[in-house]
Design a protein around this nucleic acid. Structure first.
Lengths: 168, 168
DNA sequence: TTGGAAAGTCAACAAGGCTGTCCTAAAATC
DNA sequence: GATTTTAGGACAGCCTTGTTGACTTTCCAA
Protein backbone atom coordinates (compact mmCIF):
# COMPACT_ATOMS: atom_id res chain seq x y z
CA UNK A 1 0.00 0.00 0.00
CA UNK A 2 2.90 2.30 0.71
CA UNK A 3 1.58 5.64 -0.51
CA UNK A 4 -2.08 5.39 0.47
CA UNK A 5 -3.28 8.87 1.20
CA UNK A 6 -5.68 8.80 4.12
CA UNK A 7 -7.45 11.83 2.80
CA UNK A 8 -6.82 13.40 -0.53
CA UNK A 9 -7.74 17.00 -0.11
CA UNK A 10 -5.04 18.52 -2.25
CA UNK A 11 -1.34 17.93 -2.11
CA UNK A 12 -0.89 20.24 0.88
CA UNK A 13 -2.37 17.51 3.08
CA UNK A 14 -1.28 14.51 1.09
CA UNK A 15 1.94 14.11 3.04
CA UNK A 16 0.26 14.02 6.44
CA UNK A 17 -0.52 10.34 6.71
CA UNK A 18 -0.33 8.65 10.10
CA UNK A 19 2.62 6.68 8.79
CA UNK A 20 4.54 9.80 7.91
CA UNK A 21 3.87 11.30 11.30
CA UNK A 22 4.79 8.16 13.17
CA UNK A 23 8.07 7.97 11.29
CA UNK A 24 8.77 11.56 12.23
CA UNK A 25 8.17 10.72 15.88
CA UNK A 26 10.61 7.84 15.77
CA UNK A 27 13.16 9.86 13.83
CA UNK A 28 12.99 12.46 16.55
CA UNK A 29 13.57 9.80 19.20
CA UNK A 30 16.57 8.21 17.52
CA UNK A 31 18.09 11.51 16.43
CA UNK A 32 17.95 12.93 19.93
CA UNK A 33 19.93 9.95 21.15
CA UNK A 34 22.64 10.78 18.63
CA UNK A 35 22.39 14.45 19.45
CA UNK A 36 23.30 13.89 23.10
CA UNK A 37 25.68 10.97 22.64
CA UNK A 38 28.95 12.87 22.18
CA UNK A 39 28.66 15.28 25.11
CA UNK A 40 27.43 12.40 27.28
CA UNK A 41 30.57 10.47 26.46
CA UNK A 42 32.76 13.40 27.47
CA UNK A 43 30.86 13.98 30.71
CA UNK A 44 30.79 10.38 31.83
CA UNK A 45 33.65 9.81 34.20
CA UNK A 46 33.64 13.44 35.25
CA UNK A 47 31.11 14.01 38.02
CA UNK A 48 28.79 15.74 35.57
CA UNK A 49 25.79 14.86 33.45
CA UNK A 50 23.46 16.29 30.88
CA UNK A 51 22.03 18.76 33.35
CA UNK A 52 25.46 20.31 33.86
CA UNK A 53 25.96 20.51 30.12
CA UNK A 54 22.72 22.40 29.66
CA UNK A 55 23.56 24.87 32.40
CA UNK A 56 27.03 25.46 30.99
CA UNK A 57 25.66 25.90 27.51
CA UNK A 58 23.17 28.57 28.42
CA UNK A 59 25.49 30.42 30.79
CA UNK A 60 28.01 30.59 27.99
CA UNK A 61 25.25 31.65 25.67
CA UNK A 62 23.97 34.48 27.87
CA UNK A 63 26.73 35.57 30.26
CA UNK A 64 25.63 37.36 33.43
CA UNK A 65 22.26 35.70 33.25
CA UNK A 66 20.49 35.17 36.59
CA UNK A 67 19.39 31.93 38.16
CA UNK A 68 15.74 32.78 37.52
CA UNK A 69 16.44 33.42 33.88
CA UNK A 70 18.11 30.07 33.59
CA UNK A 71 15.16 28.40 35.30
CA UNK A 72 12.79 29.65 32.64
CA UNK A 73 15.04 28.56 29.81
CA UNK A 74 15.81 25.13 31.20
CA UNK A 75 12.30 24.45 32.46
CA UNK A 76 13.30 22.82 35.75
CA UNK A 77 12.69 23.77 39.36
CA UNK A 78 15.12 26.07 41.06
CA UNK A 79 15.98 23.35 43.57
CA UNK A 80 17.02 21.07 40.75
CA UNK A 81 19.09 23.73 39.05
CA UNK A 82 20.62 24.78 42.34
CA UNK A 83 22.23 21.42 42.91
CA UNK A 84 23.85 21.55 39.49
CA UNK A 85 25.01 25.13 39.88
CA UNK A 86 26.42 24.46 43.33
CA UNK A 87 28.71 21.73 42.06
CA UNK A 88 29.80 23.84 39.11
CA UNK A 89 30.62 26.75 41.42
CA UNK A 90 32.42 24.51 43.91
CA UNK A 91 34.52 23.05 41.12
CA UNK A 92 35.38 26.49 39.83
CA UNK A 93 33.66 26.25 36.46
CA UNK A 94 31.03 28.89 37.17
CA UNK A 95 31.19 32.11 39.10
CA UNK A 96 28.04 33.51 40.74
CA UNK A 97 28.37 37.25 41.26
CA UNK A 98 25.95 38.98 43.63
CA UNK A 99 23.92 41.56 41.72
CA UNK A 100 24.87 45.21 42.21
CA UNK A 101 21.41 46.67 41.84
CA UNK A 102 19.53 43.74 43.33
CA UNK A 103 21.57 41.80 45.83
CA UNK A 104 19.16 38.88 45.72
CA UNK A 105 20.26 38.06 42.21
CA UNK A 106 23.29 35.99 41.24
CA UNK A 107 24.80 36.74 37.86
CA UNK A 108 26.39 33.67 36.35
CA UNK A 109 29.65 33.58 34.43
CA UNK A 110 31.90 30.79 33.16
CA UNK A 111 35.48 30.82 34.45
CA UNK A 112 38.42 29.92 32.22
CA UNK A 113 38.00 26.33 33.31
CA UNK A 114 34.28 26.47 32.56
CA UNK A 115 34.90 27.95 29.15
CA UNK A 116 37.33 25.15 28.36
CA UNK A 117 34.76 22.46 29.18
CA UNK A 118 32.08 24.33 27.29
CA UNK A 119 34.30 24.39 24.25
CA UNK A 120 35.06 20.71 24.33
CA UNK A 121 31.38 19.84 24.74
CA UNK A 122 30.11 22.12 22.02
CA UNK A 123 32.89 21.16 19.66
CA UNK A 124 31.88 17.53 19.93
CA UNK A 125 28.22 18.34 19.41
CA UNK A 126 28.94 20.66 16.53
CA UNK A 127 30.97 18.08 14.67
CA UNK A 128 27.95 15.80 14.49
CA UNK A 129 25.56 18.63 13.68
CA UNK A 130 27.81 19.94 11.00
CA UNK A 131 28.21 16.59 9.33
CA UNK A 132 24.47 15.99 9.44
CA UNK A 133 23.92 19.40 7.87
CA UNK A 134 26.50 18.70 5.22
CA UNK A 135 24.98 15.32 4.42
CA UNK A 136 21.47 16.73 4.13
CA UNK A 137 22.24 19.99 2.35
CA UNK A 138 21.25 23.62 2.88
CA UNK A 139 17.63 23.26 1.82
CA UNK A 140 17.07 20.38 4.21
CA UNK A 141 18.62 22.37 7.03
CA UNK A 142 16.15 25.15 6.55
CA UNK A 143 13.27 22.71 6.62
CA UNK A 144 14.71 21.07 9.70
CA UNK A 145 14.78 24.37 11.54
CA UNK A 146 11.27 25.29 10.44
CA UNK A 147 9.73 22.06 11.67
CA UNK A 148 11.60 22.16 14.97
CA UNK A 149 10.48 25.70 15.60
CA UNK A 150 6.89 24.80 14.83
CA UNK A 151 7.10 21.90 17.25
CA UNK A 152 8.00 24.02 20.28
CA UNK A 153 5.53 25.22 22.87
CA UNK A 154 4.72 28.87 22.16
CA UNK A 155 6.48 30.00 25.34
CA UNK A 156 9.61 28.06 24.50
CA UNK A 157 9.48 29.32 20.93
CA UNK A 158 9.53 32.85 22.23
CA UNK A 159 12.51 32.00 24.43
CA UNK A 160 14.25 30.47 21.48
CA UNK A 161 13.63 33.42 19.24
CA UNK A 162 14.88 35.85 21.86
CA UNK A 163 18.10 33.90 22.20
CA UNK A 164 18.32 33.75 18.44
CA UNK A 165 18.23 37.49 17.99
CA UNK A 166 20.55 38.07 20.92
CA UNK A 167 23.14 35.83 19.41
CA UNK A 168 23.21 36.87 15.77
CA UNK B 1 34.77 36.01 15.45
CA UNK B 2 31.04 35.32 15.42
CA UNK B 3 30.17 35.06 11.74
CA UNK B 4 33.55 34.04 10.38
CA UNK B 5 33.19 31.10 8.04
CA UNK B 6 35.75 28.67 9.34
CA UNK B 7 36.55 27.41 5.90
CA UNK B 8 35.25 28.81 2.67
CA UNK B 9 35.37 25.96 0.22
CA UNK B 10 32.39 26.88 -1.91
CA UNK B 11 28.83 27.74 -0.98
CA UNK B 12 28.05 24.16 0.00
CA UNK B 13 29.96 24.84 3.21
CA UNK B 14 29.25 28.53 3.56
CA UNK B 15 26.06 27.98 5.55
CA UNK B 16 27.79 25.98 8.21
CA UNK B 17 28.77 28.82 10.51
CA UNK B 18 29.13 28.19 14.21
CA UNK B 19 26.10 30.40 14.76
CA UNK B 20 23.92 28.30 12.48
CA UNK B 21 25.00 25.13 14.15
CA UNK B 22 24.52 26.49 17.65
CA UNK B 23 21.00 27.59 16.75
CA UNK B 24 20.30 24.13 15.46
CA UNK B 25 21.48 22.67 18.75
CA UNK B 26 19.19 24.90 20.76
CA UNK B 27 16.29 24.31 18.40
CA UNK B 28 16.74 20.61 18.96
CA UNK B 29 16.71 21.12 22.72
CA UNK B 30 13.56 23.23 22.80
CA UNK B 31 11.74 21.17 20.20
CA UNK B 32 12.36 17.95 22.11
CA UNK B 33 10.73 19.49 25.14
CA UNK B 34 7.65 20.20 23.08
CA UNK B 35 7.81 16.78 21.51
CA UNK B 36 7.53 15.01 24.86
CA UNK B 37 5.27 17.51 26.62
CA UNK B 38 1.87 16.10 25.65
CA UNK B 39 2.46 12.44 26.46
CA UNK B 40 4.18 13.50 29.69
CA UNK B 41 1.07 15.37 30.72
CA UNK B 42 -1.10 12.31 30.10
CA UNK B 43 1.24 10.00 31.99
CA UNK B 44 1.70 12.19 35.03
CA UNK B 45 -0.71 11.09 37.69
CA UNK B 46 -0.74 7.54 36.37
CA UNK B 47 2.15 5.56 37.79
CA UNK B 48 3.94 5.75 34.46
CA UNK B 49 6.60 7.89 32.86
CA UNK B 50 8.45 8.39 29.63
CA UNK B 51 10.10 4.99 29.90
CA UNK B 52 6.70 3.29 29.86
CA UNK B 53 5.63 5.38 26.90
CA UNK B 54 8.66 4.30 24.90
CA UNK B 55 8.06 0.64 25.66
CA UNK B 56 4.39 0.90 24.73
CA UNK B 57 5.20 2.74 21.54
CA UNK B 58 7.62 0.15 20.23
CA UNK B 59 5.55 -2.84 21.30
CA UNK B 60 2.64 -1.35 19.41
CA UNK B 61 4.96 -0.62 16.53
CA UNK B 62 6.35 -4.13 16.29
CA UNK B 63 3.88 -6.55 17.89
CA UNK B 64 5.28 -9.89 19.05
CA UNK B 65 8.72 -8.34 19.43
CA UNK B 66 10.95 -9.97 22.02
CA UNK B 67 12.50 -8.43 25.10
CA UNK B 68 15.96 -8.54 23.53
CA UNK B 69 14.72 -6.73 20.46
CA UNK B 70 13.25 -4.02 22.59
CA UNK B 71 16.50 -3.67 24.50
CA UNK B 72 18.39 -2.94 21.31
CA UNK B 73 15.84 -0.42 20.09
CA UNK B 74 15.50 1.42 23.39
CA UNK B 75 19.19 1.32 24.24
CA UNK B 76 18.76 0.54 27.94
CA UNK B 77 19.81 -2.37 30.13
CA UNK B 78 17.52 -5.33 30.64
CA UNK B 79 17.29 -4.54 34.34
CA UNK B 80 15.99 -1.12 33.51
CA UNK B 81 13.54 -2.36 30.91
CA UNK B 82 12.44 -5.23 33.10
CA UNK B 83 11.23 -2.91 35.81
CA UNK B 84 9.08 -1.07 33.28
CA UNK B 85 7.75 -4.20 31.59
CA UNK B 86 6.91 -5.83 34.89
CA UNK B 87 4.64 -3.00 35.90
CA UNK B 88 2.99 -2.92 32.47
CA UNK B 89 2.33 -6.66 32.60
CA UNK B 90 1.07 -6.49 36.19
CA UNK B 91 -1.33 -3.73 35.26
CA UNK B 92 -2.60 -5.68 32.27
CA UNK B 93 -1.39 -3.35 29.53
CA UNK B 94 1.12 -5.75 28.05
CA UNK B 95 1.00 -9.48 27.55
CA UNK B 96 4.20 -11.55 27.39
CA UNK B 97 3.61 -14.77 25.46
CA UNK B 98 6.12 -17.59 25.65
CA UNK B 99 7.63 -18.24 22.21
CA UNK B 100 6.42 -21.31 20.31
CA UNK B 101 9.60 -22.10 18.45
CA UNK B 102 11.95 -20.84 21.14
CA UNK B 103 10.37 -21.09 24.55
CA UNK B 104 13.01 -18.87 26.11
CA UNK B 105 11.64 -15.85 24.29
CA UNK B 106 8.74 -13.71 25.42
CA UNK B 107 6.75 -12.11 22.65
CA UNK B 108 5.22 -8.83 23.71
CA UNK B 109 1.74 -7.67 22.82
CA UNK B 110 -0.48 -4.82 23.92
CA UNK B 111 -3.80 -5.78 25.47
CA UNK B 112 -6.97 -3.82 24.77
CA UNK B 113 -6.15 -1.65 27.73
CA UNK B 114 -2.61 -1.15 26.46
CA UNK B 115 -3.84 -0.27 23.00
CA UNK B 116 -6.17 2.32 24.48
CA UNK B 117 -3.35 4.04 26.33
CA UNK B 118 -1.10 3.83 23.28
CA UNK B 119 -3.77 5.49 21.22
CA UNK B 120 -4.28 8.35 23.62
CA UNK B 121 -0.53 8.95 23.86
CA UNK B 122 0.18 8.82 20.17
CA UNK B 123 -2.87 10.87 19.32
CA UNK B 124 -1.59 13.65 21.52
CA UNK B 125 1.87 13.47 20.05
CA UNK B 126 0.59 13.28 16.50
CA UNK B 127 -1.55 16.35 16.89
CA UNK B 128 1.53 18.41 17.65
CA UNK B 129 3.61 16.75 14.94
CA UNK B 130 0.92 17.19 12.37
CA UNK B 131 0.43 20.84 13.12
CA UNK B 132 4.18 21.44 13.00
CA UNK B 133 4.31 19.69 9.63
CA UNK B 134 1.41 21.69 8.36
CA UNK B 135 2.95 24.95 9.53
CA UNK B 136 6.30 24.19 7.93
CA UNK B 137 5.11 22.61 4.69
CA UNK B 138 6.00 19.44 2.78
CA UNK B 139 9.43 20.56 1.61
CA UNK B 140 10.47 21.46 5.14
CA UNK B 141 9.26 18.11 6.40
CA UNK B 142 11.50 16.30 3.97
CA UNK B 143 14.48 18.34 5.06
CA UNK B 144 13.60 17.74 8.68
CA UNK B 145 13.62 13.98 8.16
CA UNK B 146 16.88 14.09 6.21
CA UNK B 147 18.75 16.01 8.87
CA UNK B 148 17.39 13.87 11.70
CA UNK B 149 18.41 10.72 9.91
CA UNK B 150 21.90 12.06 9.28
CA UNK B 151 22.20 12.93 12.95
CA UNK B 152 21.66 9.37 14.20
CA UNK B 153 24.42 6.99 15.14
CA UNK B 154 24.92 4.53 12.27
CA UNK B 155 23.60 1.64 14.36
CA UNK B 156 20.50 3.52 15.34
CA UNK B 157 20.01 4.67 11.77
CA UNK B 158 19.94 1.06 10.67
CA UNK B 159 17.39 0.30 13.38
CA UNK B 160 15.30 3.21 12.24
CA UNK B 161 15.41 2.22 8.60
CA UNK B 162 14.45 -1.34 9.40
CA UNK B 163 11.42 -0.16 11.33
CA UNK B 164 10.64 2.22 8.52
CA UNK B 165 10.44 -0.49 5.88
CA UNK B 166 8.53 -2.82 8.16
CA UNK B 167 5.84 -0.27 8.66
CA UNK B 168 5.18 1.03 5.16
C1' DT C 1 7.93 50.09 59.08
C1' DT C 2 6.06 46.18 58.16
C1' DG C 3 4.24 42.51 55.36
C1' DG C 4 4.36 40.22 51.04
C1' DA C 5 6.84 38.73 47.01
C1' DA C 6 11.02 37.33 44.81
C1' DA C 7 15.69 35.06 44.69
C1' DG C 8 18.13 31.58 46.36
C1' DT C 9 19.46 27.49 49.72
C1' DC C 10 18.92 23.04 52.22
C1' DA C 11 16.60 18.49 52.97
C1' DA C 12 14.27 14.60 51.62
C1' DC C 13 12.02 11.76 48.23
C1' DA C 14 10.91 9.46 43.43
C1' DA C 15 11.78 7.95 38.64
C1' DG C 16 14.59 5.72 35.87
C1' DG C 17 19.07 5.10 34.33
C1' DC C 18 23.31 1.99 35.69
C1' DT C 19 26.38 -2.23 37.47
C1' DG C 20 26.81 -6.61 39.64
C1' DT C 21 25.24 -11.00 40.95
C1' DC C 22 22.51 -15.00 40.92
C1' DC C 23 18.86 -17.92 39.05
C1' DT C 24 15.96 -20.95 35.62
C1' DA C 25 14.87 -22.89 31.36
C1' DA C 26 15.76 -23.82 26.80
C1' DA C 27 18.72 -24.22 22.92
C1' DA C 28 22.94 -25.17 20.71
C1' DT C 29 27.27 -27.37 20.54
C1' DC C 30 30.73 -30.59 21.55
C1' DG D 1 24.46 -37.21 26.77
C1' DA D 2 27.15 -33.49 28.93
C1' DT D 3 28.45 -28.84 28.59
C1' DT D 4 28.06 -24.19 27.20
C1' DT D 5 25.44 -20.38 25.52
C1' DT D 6 21.35 -17.65 25.24
C1' DA D 7 16.84 -15.41 26.80
C1' DG D 8 14.90 -13.77 30.40
C1' DG D 9 13.83 -12.62 35.34
C1' DA D 10 14.83 -10.94 40.08
C1' DC D 11 17.25 -8.53 43.75
C1' DA D 12 20.60 -5.26 45.70
C1' DG D 13 22.53 -0.95 45.59
C1' DC D 14 24.23 3.19 43.33
C1' DC D 15 23.84 7.78 40.60
C1' DT D 16 21.67 11.64 38.20
C1' DT D 17 18.17 14.64 37.94
C1' DG D 18 13.68 15.55 38.49
C1' DT D 19 10.11 16.79 42.36
C1' DT D 20 7.90 19.29 47.05
C1' DG D 21 8.35 21.48 51.33
C1' DA D 22 10.37 24.57 54.51
C1' DC D 23 13.65 28.19 55.22
C1' DT D 24 16.54 32.82 54.78
C1' DT D 25 17.68 37.07 52.76
C1' DT D 26 16.51 40.96 50.18
C1' DC D 27 13.59 44.21 48.03
C1' DC D 28 9.56 46.96 47.44
C1' DA D 29 5.18 48.95 48.26
C1' DA D 30 1.27 49.92 51.29
Amino acid sequence: MAGSAAQDSGESLLFLTDEQVRKGIEAMFFAYRGFTADPDRILEGMDYGRAHHRAIHFIHRSPATTVSNLLVILGVTKQSLNRVLRSLVEDGLVEARVGKRDKRERHLHLTEKGLALERSLSDAQRVRMRSAYRAAGPAAVQGFRQVLEAMMDPDLRRQFQTLKEGGV
